[in-house]
Write a protein that binds this DNA or RNA. Sequence first.
DNA 1: GACATAAGTAGCAATCAGCTACTTATTCGC
DNA 2: GCGAATAAGTAGCTGATTGCTACTTATGTC
Lengths: 237, 237
Amino acid sequence: MRERSSSAPTRTFPRRATFTVDLVLLAPRGKHLSVLLARGASNGTRERWLLPCDGPKKGETVEAVARRIMRGVAGSDVAWFEQAGAFGVGKRHAVNADVSICFVGVVPARTAAATGFEWHVISDLPQLPARQAEMVESALASLRDRMDYAPVAFRLLPAEFTLSELQQTYEMLIGRRLHKASFRRALQAAWLVEPTDEWRSEGRGRPAQLFRYAPRRRRGNRRGVRFDLLGETRTRT
Amino acid sequence: MRERSSSAPTRTFPRRATFTVDLVLLAPRGKHLSVLLARGASNGTRERWLLPCDGPKKGETVEAVARRIMRGVAGSDVAWFEQAGAFGVGKRHAVNADVSICFVGVVPARTAAATGFEWHVISDLPQLPARQAEMVESALASLRDRMDYAPVAFRLLPAEFTLSELQQTYEMLIGRRLHKASFRRALQAAWLVEPTDEWRSEGRGRPAQLFRYAPRRRRGNRRGVRFDLLGETRTRT
DNA sequence: GACATAAGTAGCAATCAGCTACTTATTCGC
DNA sequence: GCGAATAAGTAGCTGATTGCTACTTATGTC
């Protein structure tokens, strides 16, 4: 299936193939993350679950597709989203697209799922088509890679929040515990929050001061090199 | 254009659209990086240049497409490559694919370009279609993000190399100068190289000892959080 | 042999990060 | 009221990491 080409004269003409946009939409669920799944047609005894996905309408960017799917399945209150790569043939996909372009997004807790969709805790997912299972893994990795650079946690919280809430949100998103004193020290150094005059008492224990997100300055922080590479010589793809 | 669906019963059926794989292939050129461009049909007075691209053959993964294009345009001696995201409609693409899946790769200096292709220094590129220009930017960012984790530099060098050569390679790939003593100290701490018994004298100055890449151990290095995020509240997509 | 040049090292000073151990302020049970 | 329990918030030690200046070492050039 050749198309009209304006590519290099000496090469074969570019072929084309089809894709969909698949969405890994995450939301807090207690101390863990949950992912939104669509109930698939159950072809037998067992339920089938899939990631939400769709193709582009005419002229739509892939970001727009992702945004449209998010609006459709969970409303429009998205804390953050980003592309997490394209996943190709070789592992079965739900609707037989050649390639799925994966987006990862985060929405606040208690975001209602549209009919036919349900939140599932990531530690206990039903079986997904191989390609989609891979995408969930990769989406989580993308999110965790970005946590140091994108204010995901702040967008998940209300305008005013306690530092303990902020820390818990970070812990949930990156999937591991953080040390309280170190967390706060780093936060201070980054000039990301400012205290309000309000305090909140939450049952027992000392009341917590409320803060708001108010980033002040940028650390022009070019380090040398880190050499954090694995011992093995292999590429990530 | 609806397709057979096994998606959520209550949603519209996934649409599909076409894509190509586009390649940002980089090679050292003196102290800078160059990118491989394909000479396009010159529709007027000015030359047109494009990124190499193609679509998948039946059953081919996107990685396989990227690898095939690389083989075709620059041989098979690839130091490293990785996907750098999908770039959608909204900016013109060379062959009118709806979406381009971008791969970034690095090959050694002096890799010969196939007929119809030429290396261009990245600081002085000819005008490219908007989407492809965006891809070049993004590919460089991806490479630099990955430098701390993938042994790209080691794969560009011969089996035995001096530490100055290694440092220069790093500087070229990440696009900034590094401090000699700090570079070496970090390298030692990471147990990535081992000295050989050989020394190389390169004109004037003290001869340099040769090293080889021999990664020994892994630093299980989970930091707390870095809060390296920008002041502005915006996502990267 | 003096000088230029480049490799390679020592070590200071500042910062960062992980941790223990505290102080402060509140509710609960009595 | 008062002590125990609980959670917020802080102090500060320690070792690791980093950027840097300034050195020493070994070679070629003249």
